[in-house]
């Protein structure tokens, strides 16, 4: 029989190991955050958000004279906004309707297939969606357009919206749905009045940085131009702060709307 002290020692050892390894896994992540803050902070200012990207020459002159690089990422932000708007306009209605459909028909074979395809679409790497956007939009129109990006983005958004719609509706207490039906409201207005407000909260949690938005593209451009390198960090920092803001808003809203 193993001695009790031996077992307790092992128990402590495991706990210590878990704490140490957890701490260690945070190190690179904290380093990345730190580097972004350190290198990105000084570029981040109002003009960074309102001016467009400087040319390579302007940036080089600024770097050589030790000043901060003029200009910002306004064009990227505007581009992203346009893309996100178009993509949202396409993906949200379709995704919502499809999510409602799936939550209404949980067990049919067709719904299972659709659900499976949604998961498939969600797991598809963005580079493949990029190829698709190229084949569907760039080839026929012979130019890279914001529309192509928006299509790609909407394909990436679609599964997220479908899934969060379905999950929210599924988790909603059945009594609530029954109550609405008992009040005599028609099926459609029931869905809209009772279910959609609850969805709003989960919708905002959608994360705009995962797909290659225009800001990400700008970052790629900064990376390939040595003179613009230092703007990478501030652009990323901006993205990060934006995500943080969205997350906090989403949490607040879902707290308010908790049923």
């Amino acid at each position: 029989m193993k001695s009790v002290t031996n077992r307790i020692f092992k128990d402590r050892l495991l706990k210590t190991g878990i704490i140490v390894l957890s701490g260690l896994s945070c190190v690179p992540l904290l380093l990345i955050l730190g580097e972004m803050l350190l290198k990105g902070w000084k570029q981040l200012s109002w003009s960074f958000l309102t001016q467009s990207t400087p040319t390579s020459l302007e940036a080089m002159l600024a770097v050589n004279s030790g000043e901060r690089i003029p200009g910002g990422i306004a064009n990227g932000i505007v581009g992203t906004l346009i893309m996100v708007l178009i993509a949202t306009a396409i993906a949200v209605p379709i995704g919502l309707l499809c999510g409602i459909y799936l939550s209404e028909h949980r067990k049919t074979r067709f719904a299972t297939t659709v659900r499976f395809l949604t998961e498939l679409l969600q797991g598809t790497p963005s580079i493949i969606i990029g190829i698709i956007a190229y084949l569907w939009m760039v080839v026929p129109m012979k130019t890279h357009s914001a529309l192509a990006g928006a299509i790609a983005l909407s394909i990436m958004m679609l599964p997220l919206i479908v899934r969060s719609t379905e999950e929210t509706l599924y988790l909603l207490p059945a009594s609530l749905k029954e109550a609405a039906l008992a009040l005599g409201s028609s099926y459609r207005s029931m869905v809209i009045k009772v279910l959609l407000p609850a969805l709003g909260a989960s919708m905002i949690q959608w994360d705009p940085t995962r797909p290659s938005s225009a800001v990400s593209l700008l970052i790629w451009q900064f990376y390939n131009d040595p003179n613009l390198n230092s703007m990478i960090w501030s652009a990323s920092l901006f993205l990060l702060l934006f995500v943080l803001l969205l997350n906090i808003t989403a949490k607040q809203i879902s707290k308010k709307w908790r049923i």
Binding site: L102, L121, L135
Partner: peptide, 28 residues
């Protein structure tokens, strides 16, 4: 009725997902 239109829309959007997946696969 409006409800019927709504239900058709639901089915249509589910079909659209299938279509998108098929189109992606076909294009590739």
């Amino acid at each position: 009725t409006k409800d019927k239109v709504f239900r058709t829309l639901l089915l249509g959007s589910a079909l659209l997902i299938v279509l998108v997946c098929e189109a992606v696969f076909y294009s590739l």
